Simulated scan of single mutants.
Amino acid sequence: MSSGEKGVDTRILKRIIGYLAPYKAWVGVALVTVLTAAYLGPLRPKLVQVAIDEHIVIGDVDGLQRMIMWLIFVLLGEGLLSFVNAYLTQWIGQQAIYDLRTKVWRHIQKQPLAFFDGTPVGRLITRVTSDVESLSQVLSAGIVTILGDLFKLIFIAYFMFSLNWRLALVTLAVMPFMLWATFWFKRKVRDAYRDTRKQVARLNSFLQEHVTGMRIVQL
């Protein structure tokens, strides 16, 4: 990826995140829920390890029952936090998308008539509908989910190294290859996605022009 492409992507990302500014308090709540859920996920295997090593091996039934209760509590807490996070992120994303669509619509309304003479209506429809809808994935769950997954990996690595750092290093030895494959796949998918958006815009323009002009063609 060239530096120019990185700069463009960074500017676009900043503009997208800017639409979340009016809802920053709710974004903060969503971040807290996703980070807490990210910690509770890797905590469950740790509790299982404690239950086996410190209670099952020595036949401590009372201690095992307490660990089972903790596991149920952690599982329910993780599920509840995941539900709250999913609801919040979707609500925030839809509110931001509404603001973005309104802004795009008002911008189109302010354009001179010459703009509409040179721009196919189908392309404008694509910009207001499907292109904006594509951003909803980023605004609704993308940013918060990425942070949650990142911290979940950090917590998993912490528990792995706390148990056995040698085995953890062996397990993480494949990470460089996975990162390389991820970045390679990202470049390919990004180019294909951009081409897809262009083709969708052309298709909508073609349909709009031919459907609206059907009466003239039939005459």
Results as ranks from 00 to 15, higher is better:
residue 126 T to C: 06
residue 87 Y to N: 04
residue 56 I to T: 00
residue 51 A to I: 04
residue 3 S to D: 14
residue 187 R to W: 03
residue 19 Y to R: 10
residue 182 T to V: 02
residue 76 L to G: 03
residue 162 S to T: 10
residue 7 G to I: 03
residue 15 R to F: 12
residue 63 G to K: 03
residue 104 V to L: 15
residue 42 P to H: 06
residue 38 A to M: 10
residue 183 F to N: 07
residue 163 L to H: 10
residue 45 P to G: 13
residue 156 I to Y: 15
residue 149 D to M: 14
residue 170 V to A: 02
residue 44 R to G: 02
residue 52 I to Y: 13
residue 11 R to H: 04
residue 207 L to G: 05
residue 124 L to F: 00
residue 7 G to C: 06
residue 174 V to Y: 00
residue 61 V to I: 14
residue 97 I to S: 03
residue 187 R to S: 15
residue 200 V to F: 03
residue 16 I to Y: 01
residue 94 Q to E: 06
residue 16 I to G: 04
residue 10 T to N: 15
residue 192 A to T: 09
residue 212 T to F: 00
residue 147 L to N: 00
residue 157 A to N: 09
residue 77 G to T: 01
residue 214 M to R: 05
residue 50 V to C: 09
residue 100 L to Q: 05
residue 190 R to S: 14
residue 21 A to S: 13
residue 40 L to M: 09
residue 113 L to M: 08
residue 13 L to I: 10
residue 217 V to M: 15
residue 146 I to A: 12
residue 84 V to F: 13
residue 31 L to C: 10
residue 205 S to E: 02
residue 13 L to K: 10
residue 37 A to S: 14
residue 126 T to A: 11
residue 74 V to I: 05
residue 118 G to H: 00
residue 123 R to S: 13
residue 150 L to E: 04
residue 65 Q to H: 15
residue 172 L to N: 04
residue 149 D to F: 11
residue 160 M to R: 03
residue 24 K to G: 07
residue 141 A to W: 11
residue 61 V to Y: 08
residue 127 R to Q: 10
residue 87 Y to G: 08
residue 111 Q to Y: 07
residue 204 N to L: 03
residue 43 L to S: 13
residue 108 I to T: 07
residue 118 G to R: 08
residue 6 K to S: 15
residue 183 F to Y: 08
residue 47 L to V: 13
residue 119 T to P: 00
residue 119 T to K: 00
residue 119 T to Q: 00
residue 216 I to K: 07
residue 3 S to M: 06
residue 198 K to S: 08
residue 28 G to Y: 06
residue 120 P to F: 00
residue 32 V to N: 01
residue 130 S to W: 11
residue 128 V to A: 11
residue 17 I to T: 01
residue 125 I to V: 01
residue 164 N to K: 02
residue 206 F to I: 01
residue 148 G to R: 06
residue 198 K to W: 09
residue 161 F to Y: 11
